[in-house]
Design a protein around this nucleic acid. Sequence first.
DNA 1: AAGAAGCTCATACTTAAGTACCAATTTAAT
DNA 2: ATTAAATTGGTACTTAAGTATGAGCTTCTT
Lengths: 140, 140
Amino acid sequence: MLKTVFRFSLIIVALLVLFQLSNASLFIPSIPADVVIGIGALILISLGVYLGGNMKKKKVIEVSLKAEINKEKIKELGISQRELEVLNLISEGLSNQEIGEQLFVSESTIKTHVSSLFVKLDVKRRTQAVTRAKEWQVIT
Amino acid sequence: MLKTVFRFSLIIVALLVLFQLSNASLFIPSIPADVVIGIGALILISLGVYLGGNMKKKKVIEVSLKAEINKEKIKELGISQRELEVLNLISEGLSNQEIGEQLFVSESTIKTHVSSLFVKLDVKRRTQAVTRAKEWQVIT
DNA sequence: AAGAAGCTCATACTTAAGTACCAATTTAAT
DNA sequence: ATTAAATTGGTACTTAAGTATGAGCTTCTT
């Protein structure tokens, strides 16, 4: 927001400078008006490139960051908080036992969560679960 | 390339139009010079935004597309063509048997490739292999 | 020609993954 | 307070994954 204000200020300043220059050129014949206009044009184009570039950049970054997790989809699938944790650890390549150790529960519990996840994601294997979950933006 | 030429043509045309306008304003007092300059400035800034926007856009897209596969890394790890195929199918969630069917070889062969891959990627499980391979840009 | 590397396949084995059922406990919602 | 959902855990079982080893075959290089 502050940056936007800053940019508009820049535009205004640039315009004022341009007006001053044009007035000067009209009263000082030693500097041709064409040269002044040319310089002004270059400055304005540069300014436009700067402003436009930043705008586009932000847009792209926002898009790539927004494409992360779809909470509605998770709810729609009925995936619980705990299941989501397990799913993320699966995607990191951990075994059921390792996941159990990390979450301080037994391997049996993890197996229950995993089986439940497979039903909700409609898959048969954990590798499939990972790709499917990324497809559906359940994980990143 | 053609687009670049087109853009520069646009710049030149815009400059010429601006010069004409400025000349006209100097001889036709009914139109204040300030107004002409203001309009010209707006046109130039718009042009700059358009040009700069496109440039940045291309840059970002190139970066996001370039971050795909690191062939040198694959060579460095000594991963063969066939192993790479198997690795990609693993990342898609296929079982050893399914991979064998898809590549018209036995499950035994796939197991051999998989074990070989695990050594090269320094992992113990196929889920780990996928995350490691993506880390190292061996697959996308 | 001989060796190296890649691809293939098999057997035998161990381990992890996944399924099916059941059940106790906790937590959140009605 | 009662129902429903979530979390936890167990047993018993089947299936897939992964390891180890050996071997035949092709291709490419030296």
